[in-house]
Computed example of a mutant assay.
Amino acid sequence: MTESSVNQPLVVPSVLPADFARLGDEVRELCQAGVDRIQWDVMDGVFVPNVTFGPDVIAAARPHSAVGFEAHLMVVNPDELLGRYVDAGCELVIVHAEACTHLHRTLAHIRDLGARSGVALNPHTPAEVVEHVLSETDLVLAMTVNPGFGGQAYIPAVEPKIARLRRMIDDSGFPIELEVDGGITGDTIRGASAAGADVFISGSWMYAYPDGKTAAVAQLRAAALDSAPHREAA
């Protein structure tokens, strides 16, 4: 076994704190800040107590972006919506394990539609829920807040689960990204990165950063890389 180099961390903003009246401009500004892709938090008012973006809104913003889109579907019936969000320009579609009766089939369907598949876990949901669907998964998202609203405080108690997911992914041999979402700041990103996450969602903190989004992205990326563990590869 030899020590591998750490994967470059990906910084992905949520547009939840954006000015919805100027989403095209907001997307362009995020691209100029050096983000790796952009996340759309899709909420239905049932799975979570909030309502946000439909596919037509995302499709209207897509021509303004030079980076990929991911849709995080916090909805009770994701299977009925998958095709519409792929058609809207989302190259990655994330569903919640808690909302999917047949998770393996849902993830396979996302791939059949031509997108990359992701599965999200709420803070209370154990890592083992995804153990037998990793072959159909391109990304696992460990929520570090309870989904539904931006601006919540990071839950450090999720970090052992992140570490467990990291081991499961590495043992699987599949090239799966491990994403965290919720309360990610220049400080909290360090614990998530040390636990093994390599993709980081930031919303409220990035938008409020006093030196602007470009500086915020640079700080997040540097802190994540500095904190990342070196993993071994065969």
Results as ranks from 00 to 15, higher is better:
Val6Trp: 00
Glu177Ile: 03
Glu159Tyr: 09
Glu26Asn: 10
Arg221Asp: 06
Glu3Tyr: 05
Leu134Phe: 04
Gln219Arg: 06
Val35Phe: 14
Leu220Trp: 04
Val76Asn: 05
Gly118Cys: 06
Arg22Tyr: 10
Gly150Asp: 07
Phe47Lys: 14
Gly151Asp: 12
Leu225Asp: 05
His102Tyr: 01
Tyr85Val: 15
Leu139Pro: 04
Gly196Asp: 07
Gln219Asp: 09
Tyr154Asp: 13
Gly89Arg: 12
Asn50Gln: 08
Val158Gly: 15
Pro17Val: 03
Ser5His: 00
Arg105Asn: 07
Gln39Asn: 07
Ala194Asp: 01
Ser172Leu: 10
Ala61Gln: 12
Ala99Gln: 06
Ile184Trp: 03
Pro175Asp: 09
Ala142Pro: 04
Val158Thr: 15
Asn7Ile: 13
Val158Leu: 15
Asp198Ile: 00
Ala115Gln: 08
Gly182Tyr: 05
Ser202Cys: 02
Ala195Ile: 06
Glu29Leu: 13
Leu23Tyr: 10
Asp226Gln: 14
Met168Glu: 03
Met1Phe: 07
Gln32Thr: 08
Glu179Thr: 09
Arg28Glu: 15
Asn50Gly: 08
Ala33Lys: 04
Leu225Arg: 08
Asp187Ala: 09
Glu128Pro: 04
Ala60Trp: 15
Gly186His: 03
Ile38Ala: 12
Arg231Met: 04
Pro147Phe: 11
Glu98Phe: 02
Val6Tyr: 00
Ile201Gly: 00
Cys100His: 00
Leu81His: 14
Thr52Gln: 14
Thr52Phe: 13
Asp36Cys: 05
Asn146Thr: 07
Leu121Ala: 10
Leu139Val: 12
Ser227Thr: 00
Thr101Asp: 00
Leu23Ile: 12
His96Lys: 09
Leu165Lys: 00
Gly114Trp: 06
Leu139His: 06
Asp44Gly: 11
Ser117Val: 07
Pro13His: 01
Ala194Cys: 02
Val12Pro: 03
Val35Ser: 14
Pro55Ser: 11
Arg231Tyr: 03
Pro229Val: 02
Gly212Gln: 04
Glu29Met: 14
Arg111Asp: 01
Gly186Ser: 02
Val158Pro: 15
Ala233Asn: 05
Tyr209Phe: 15
Met74Arg: 15
Pro13Glu: 01
Gly212Asn: 05
Ile184Tyr: 06
Thr106His: 00
Ala197Lys: 07
Ala222Tyr: 08
Tyr85Ser: 14
Asp36Ile: 05
Asp19Trp: 05
Phe174Met: 11
His104Met: 08
Glu177Lys: 09
Arg84Thr: 15
Ala215Trp: 11
Ile58Ser: 08
Asp36Leu: 05
His72Asn: 03
Ser204Leu: 13
Thr52Ala: 14
Gln32Ile: 02
